[in-house]
Design a protein around this nucleic acid. Structure first.
Length: 206
DNA sequence: TTCGGAATGG
DNA sequence: CCATTCCGAA
């Protein structure tokens, strides 16, 4: 895993390996639902799902179609919105998502908790082109610049990441490359939302 | 429609 | 852990 050094410099510099759970490599972990949603949203898929009003808000325009797409990805032919939405609801506790009440099929990502870092920066190519800047400009956080000389303190890194930094214009989302974007989600207990401070646990059955 | 418990599986 | 499946309740 320490083979490529010059590529993915941001990654190499700022984060330790463990922070990059291979999201969906062939033999690795499966795609998570929110990966999938972000993927569709990112490429402005438009039909089944799209960004809504607020930052991180999205609306599912065609629930059953979205469910079919999701089912196809996961090899679950009997997927439907009822089940998909249950998975979405589990995200409430994990604080990845919450519901925008009053608006049908509308949810909102908690980007406080969900921090996306790094997409494949190619060593050879110099930023192909900034062809299209999508409106509804989304949720990508780029990796901040500064790297102290001596740092093995990971918790510090986390807070550095938490500093939002909006990339001027990124060419797009890492979706086309498939298998190589990374997603990192720490669990800091900073930035309490209004009206909700729930620990991820609190329930343990068995 | 939306919510969340419960059982189950990979 | 992360859904999937099923389902009763609000």
């Amino acid at each position: 895993m320490g083979s490529v050094s010059s590529s993915y410099w941001t990654r190499a510099v700022l984060f330790p390996d463990w922070a990059y759970k291979p999201a969906w490599s062939p033999g690795s972990r499966q795609v998570q639902l929110w990966h999938f949603l972000l993927e569709l949203l990112g490429r402005g898929e438009g039909g089944a799902i799209g960004w809504a009003g607020e930052w991180g808000e999205f609306v599912i325009r065609d629930p059953e179609r979205l469910a079919r797409m999701w089912g196809e990805r996961k090899g679950k032919p009997h997927m439907n919105y009822d089940k998909l939405s249950r998975a979405l609801r589990y995200y409430y506790n994990k604080r990845i998502l919450h519901k925008t009440k009053g608006k049908r099929f509308t949810y909102k990502f908690n980007f406080n908790k969900l921090i996306l870092v790094n997409y494949p920066t190619f060593p050879s190519v110099h930023m192909p082109s900034q062809t299209h800047a999508l409106q509804g400009q989304p949720p990508y956080l780029s990796v901040p610049p500064p790297m102290g000389p001596s740092q093995s303190d990971l918790s510090r890194l986390t807070s550095v990441n938490a500093t939002l930094h909006f990339p001027p214009a990124l060419s797009g989302w890492p979706v086309n490359m498939g298998r190589s974007f990374s997603i990192y989600h720490p669990t800091p207990h900073m930035a309490a939302e209004e009206g909700e401070e729930r620990r991820g646990e609190g329930k343990r059955i068995n």
